[in-house]
Amino acid sequence: MLSIETFVVVSVIKIVIALFVLLTAVAYTVWLERKVVGHIQNRWGPTRVGPFGLLQPLADGIKFIFKEDLTPPHVYKPLYIAAPMIALICALTSIAVIPIGNWVTIGGVHTPLQITDLNIGLLIILGITSLGVYGVALAGWSSNSKYSLLGGLRASAQMVSYEVSLGLSLIGVLIVAGSFSLRDIVDGQGGHFWGFIPKWNIFYGGQFVAFFIYLISAYAETNRVPFDLPEAESELVAGYHTEYSAMKFAMFFMAEYANMITVACVASLLFLGGWHGPVFGPPILQAILPVFWFVLRVFGFLFVYIWVRGTLPRFRYDQLMAFGWKFLLPLAIANLVITALVVAWRA
């Protein structure tokens, strides 16, 4: 056991590092998206700021900070200011329970590579990300603009609807793993079966249908193409953040990308075996490799996100709802029932 002083110091260090890494990852996911979509579309993406445009996120950040912070006269001010904060805080908080690797010993302190290892980690993530919808809904309402209102309405309806199938798709994994702790779920996916196939939930637990449901619901949850209706620029100008500018807009923007990263982390942990992968070499390499495998999965997932954005058109509002309730939800329930039966039969 750690002493209370060590615990506080270690926790603060971990929080600072996690926040820094997450925000950097957000910035470079934007860069990655612009680069990848650029190459899909026969363009270069950012090239001017730094080598390969690598300093572009920095330039964007500086621009956002120095822009005039406009508040339109017709908004309801308290909620208008609170909304982007709610969105961003909810998006950033969920990183607290996400483990990115095994236990490590640094300077005599034995600690897990996550801010806190809760036994209900998954529930915390689901709960906090659902609160994020308040940011969007309140932004749409408090802006007192028709486009924002429509965007906010679409976003709330969409996020609430897809939350259901998202949650149900995860329950299958929970049944297989028998735990809410993300660390336990990952530990259960170690090893191989039939000699070479890794025992990831997507293969071994038979949860590939759940993964498919999760993938689609996650796109809808994070308002990404082909489910980007809340901010469909060709219809609603910019949706719920039409009236936002400067840093307040940047907060929504960062929240969206932070949510993408959270969703990618959860997918890697629950379905793709977390940080499991070949580990070899000297101790330092053995400590770093699991983190590397984990980050690789997360980026793979993010890449698919971006790839889809470069390829698909957008759904219509009613089609989106019909797809969520009439197709994904029954599929998720069927998957849940079948998984439960299989697990019960094996036991």
């Binding site: 579309q41 026969n42 060709s234 470069g310 058109p313 957008r314």
Partner: peptide, 16 residues
């Protein structure tokens, strides 16, 4: 038209 419906890439292919 494709961009209005959300397919961004077609736009740049056409302009090529």
């Amino acid at each position: 038209h494709a961009m209005d419906i959300g397919a961004l890439t077609v736009f740049l292919y056409c302009f090529r």
